[in-house]
Design a protein around this nucleic acid. Sequence first.
DNA 1: TATTGTTATACTCTATAACTATA
DNA 2: TATAGTTATAGAGTATAACAATA
Lengths: 157, 157
Amino acid sequence: MTDALSQIEAFFPYRFAVAAERFSRNLMDVYGKSYGLSREEWRLLFLLSQADEIASNELVQRTTLDKVQLSRAAQKLVDKGLITREISPLDRRVKVYKSTQKGRDLFQEIKPQVDARALEILGAMDETSRQSLQDGMNSLLKALNAPERLTEDPGAA
Amino acid sequence: MTDALSQIEAFFPYRFAVAAERFSRNLMDVYGKSYGLSREEWRLLFLLSQADEIASNELVQRTTLDKVQLSRAAQKLVDKGLITREISPLDRRVKVYKSTQKGRDLFQEIKPQVDARALEILGAMDETSRQSLQDGMNSLLKALNAPERLTEDPGAA
DNA sequence: TATTGTTATACTCTATAACTATA
DNA sequence: TATAGTTATAGAGTATAACAATA
């Protein structure tokens, strides 16, 4: 009567969504609860901490952030003194972002903790499964990026 | 200068989150845009369409819905005439949910379309990768459900 | 007194469109 | 006129707490 429940539990898209949400929340615990960063802020800080500078238009093209999300996440990081935002000399409509020393320091502090949390979970898997997951994921990402699948959201590599 | 971008693109948690979100959105397109169901409503309809009846407390224990989400999603499905909600004769605090014929019909109409969309994506992967993804995912779910990892959210598997 | 489901509230996210400044 | 980034607005989703009914 009741193991209709195991029916949905076996449904791949459901399992996938559940796994992704739990995994993501585990990491958000680290940079979110402890350091007050949103997922978008964390991603942006991540990017800028290892680049000299990145222009706004490039960020929009190559990340999952749209221009509104980018603008707002960047504003918060600027307010916190973690990044700077300047007008591009090449095109005065464009902004160029750089991390500050404070931003890089914070990133260096958080990143190992995020890695540790991820490894704590992935480390509970055996090596073969971990490799399978990586390979499968890479293949899935390719499939998702295949041109036919771009319902909307083009160029979001 | 700029392939800090490929740094985050290579970061497993980032790839995983991006893949999950895109995959999920693809399916939401089907039951959401075309049929006006939220993800929670869809999951609930899914469950009830293949069970005789399920009690509220069981749903909360075994799905990712908490009691508030369940109450609200169920209310919407009741309003749409897709499920019924009755007081349990065993414990008058508990509700028992059943799908209506209309609910089951709608589910039978939507489910093949969701499957088709999922297969459209997964079908672009080769068989080996698909198998790897499944195995890896199963292993990851086990790792996420391991007792040490239950930061909060116990018994939600 | 504890538990179940509902309702209320505030907060965050998302999507869209309007606006400004530059090109 | 088109593009880039910002601001405004409304809607959906989430988290928490208060509440009423039942145990």
